[in-house]
Write a protein that binds this DNA or RNA. Structure first.
Lengths: 335, 335
DNA sequence: TTGAAAGCGTTACCAG
DNA sequence: CTGGTAACGCTTTCAA
């Protein structure tokens, strides 16, 4: 409640000195600084962010734009971002698009462009040319996590290579009848991610001279329930069945495992399943997967932003995060 | 990039009028308002939140304090909060404690007390007397979601009654050997939640003249992996086994189901399992549960806050959210 | 090392 | 209905 003036009065110095002392700036004598600190504590003084934001031009806040918070990947990135922000004493403004395509413009206008943040981190989002332009005109550091976006640097795995490696794991086990459970293009989400994984799958299949059956490439919505439903539909269909499935995410992969159980199929004997992510639950499911670390991606991206805000040289290039195969019990040679 | 003065100049009116026109305040002629709007659009003018925050005392932002974002319940509440904020054009500042007990004080000081928000919503957190006092002195509307907190109003289910109903479902099926997989007291989390559920369990058992075996009341950390591990430990132990288990959350309940599978037990034939939540995955698992809606709780709490900020009468009482039994295939009479 | 004073970009009050 | 003009509470030169 107390303002800076009261602290100044209590300490017998000017408000300028109080400001400098509290922010740890140089050129303040130790004794003065100590006295100011004490007074501030006693009076419960905390600088108003509006006022300091207005005066200094910095808000000490990072804007994070997410498609939703109900997906494992996003929550992990958020935790990573947050960990980094915490140590830099930055706050996080969360802009959740929540699938509301129509609200995007309002979010952009009302919030992002409102100088409430010093920098922006976007998750798995694609931007319209218009949005990109607005971002650029804002002129503050921007980065994307999870899937490349044209014109913006990003942090993320090599989607295509990762998908290829996953598929090759199945092929290496001797599978030839392989299905792909992919994400569909959700509105506003970065369609490069599911598309890249699909391309990697196709490329691996082609390289092994295997055929990709269109009816075995099915959309699983990136979620467990949708993945299960999609896989169930595939297994319900008469005719030949795949002996293995490469799912574009672990959540869908777990759904596929449940679908296998629904059909009385054993994993991996009757059906091998591999995913991407290494979700918190994957070990429990014995799911073989291409592990990645969204937490690290989030903190790495945040660090880049923070560095720049601290005056560091802006680094233009994108960052490739690692992904690696983790073999568990959901994959085996075909029976 | 343009400031309000440029819009004023372009329109030939004063900055005061621009401000009024853009915010939809009364006492502005339609023609003036239209002209101002057009000019603002053309110039790409958006008010600076720091400046208007400083001048008006309102930030148009809600602070949300969460223990973490990696739990289904929290993400659902966040979505609910966000939906409500969106329609009110409010922004969300996310304060993630992330289990960093030590950072709590910093978060409080640096951010919450920094007048960056107009109101505060806390998730499943317990506050120290000191923290409570700081909150009170801040003087802005506060509410808690998920578990009652002394001295603060809250929105949430009746923990004890819900747990009792869950337990009674098992008892009603004829079970007498019932275990409880509970949450443990995590640092800073609201311990009233797991404690209330445990008490409800005990009460139901006592009412049915059943004995609660201490070694069958085990901590599952509110997560699937920990729930599975805990249940596995219980099942590994020599001696009698429970025929049913009441888990304090669906995530733990699913873990228990996996543990049953690990031990070659069939659900529900060998082991009945019931949880609380109605997690997104629960239907896929056939999990019987006490359904609640954290999304609704989040939006209800936010609405209360927003109402007050809009000048509505502060409502003191807490709000009880509904929970109801959803019977699926994980529970049946003992074999 | 410190202080005085000029902003920062809005909003709100009071006249007109 | 509109304009002038103080705030709002800090930060940041520039002097001392």
């Amino acid at each position: 409640m107390a303002g800076i003036e009261e602290v100044a009065r209590a300490t017998g110095v000017s408000t300028a000195t109080v400001s400098r002392a509290l922010r740890g700036l140089p050129n303040v004598s130790d004794t003065t600084r100590a006295a100011v600190r004490r007074a501030a504590d006693e009076l419960g003084y905390v600088a108003s962010s509006s006022a300091s934001g207005l005066a200094s031009g910095r808000t000490l806040a990072l804007g994070v734009v997410v498609p939703s918070v109900s997906r494992w990947f996003y929550t992990q990135v958020l935790e990573g971002v947050d960990a980094e922000l915490r140590s830099a004493s930055y706050d996080m403004i969360l802009f959740n698009l929540g699938g509301h395509r129509g609200d995007r413009e309002r979010v952009f206008h009302r919030s992002i462009l409102r100088k409430r943040t010093d920098a922006l981190l976007a998750l798995c989002l694609d931007f319209t040319p218009d949005e990109r332009e607005q971002l650029a005109s804002l002129g503050h550091p921007t980065i994307v996590v999870g899937g490349p976006v044209k014109g913006l640097r990003s942090v993320g795995i090599d989607e295509k290579a990762t998908a290829r490696e996953a598929t090759n794991h199945l092929i290496g086990l001797g599978h030839t009848e392989i299905a792909h459970l992919g994400g569909e293009d959700e509105e506003g989400l970065n369609s490069n991610v599911p598309a890249g994984r699909l391309r990697g799958f196709e490329k691996a299949m082609r390289a092994a001279h295997l055929t990709v059956r269109p009816e075995w490439v099915i959309p699983g919505g990136f979620s467990l329930p949708e993945g299960r439903a999609a896989m169930n539909r595939l297994l319900d269909r008469p005719g030949p069945k795949p002996t293995a499935v490469f799912a574009g995410s672990d959540e869908m992969a777990m759904g596929a495992m449940l679908a296998a159980a629904d059909h009385g199929l054993r994993v991996p004997d009757d059906l091998s399943v591999i995913g991407i992510d290494d979700h918190d639950y994957s070990a429990c499911f014995g799911l073989t997967t291409m592990a990645q670390s969204p937490f690290e991606q989030g903190s790495a991206a945040t660090r880049i932003l923070l560095d720049e805000l601290a005056g560091g040289e802006p680094r233009a290039g994108s960052v490739r995060s690692p992904a690696h195969l983790v073999v568990r019990t959901s994959t085996a040679p075909p029976r």
